[in-house]
């Protein structure tokens, strides 16, 4: 038995501890966001956040994620209440088939949480491990820049709210 904390909720699953996290997320927790792309850490479509860092869930054994905070694209918002990253991808229409997109979003989320003032060059460099075969890269970069701006704004408003008595 392994207990995983995913998007803030605890789940106890009965799987072989060597099972990559990706399969547990998809099959046991019915979270579709992380995708199987290569199983080799070459394409990034399985990327999720673990303790705030972007990791390839196709390579990480589920047991190694126990006791850590796992976040998937489902943890960024819902279709009815999308979060800033999701809103930015919709606003930029930054998808064609969209298969690679959730992985990109999680890498971008990890970047912006660690470095809110990330530049376009930072974003391009951070996304280097990710492949998009439809050729949507230019829109993806624009979407992440838009998300960065929105998240900085939310952050600034939050700080002002805290500062006022």
């Amino acid at each position: 038995m392994i207990t995983l904390t995913v998007n803030g909720n605890d789940h106890t699953v009965d799987v072989d501890p060597a099972t990559p996290l990706l399969y547990v997320l998809r099959e046991d927790l019915a979270l579709h966001g992380a995708k199987f792309g290569c199983g080799l850490g070459q394409c990034g479509s399985c990327t999720v956040m673990v303790d705030g860092r972007a990791v390839f869930s196709c390579l990480l054994p589920a047991a190694a994620a126990a006791g850590r905070q796992v976040k998937t694209v489902e943890g960024l918002g819902t279709i009815d209440e999308p979060g800033p990253m999701q809103q930015a991808f919709m606003a930029e229409q930054a998808a064609q088939c969209g298969y690679c997109i959730p992985g990109m979003m999680m890498r971008a989320q990890a970047l912006l949480e660690a470095k809110p003032a990330a530049t376009e060059a930072d974003i391009r460099a951070a996304l280097e491990p990710h492949l998009c075969r439809c050729g949507t890269q230019a829109r993806i970069v624009r979407a992440v820049m838009r998300a960065a701006q929105a998240m900085r704004l939310v952050d600034a408003v939050g700080r002002r709210a805290e500062a006022s008595p």
Binding site: R26, H32, G33, T72, V73, L76, M90, Q93, A95, G98
Partner: peptide, 22 residues
């Protein structure tokens, strides 16, 4: 240029693909 109808489900982790059929 209206927004594509298939994008919201794809960026929120919905079941968007045959790969997601359970």
């Amino acid at each position: 240029s209206i927004e594509r109808v298939d994008i919201p489900v794809k960026v929120t982790g919905g079941a968007a693909y045959v790969h997601d059929l359970r």
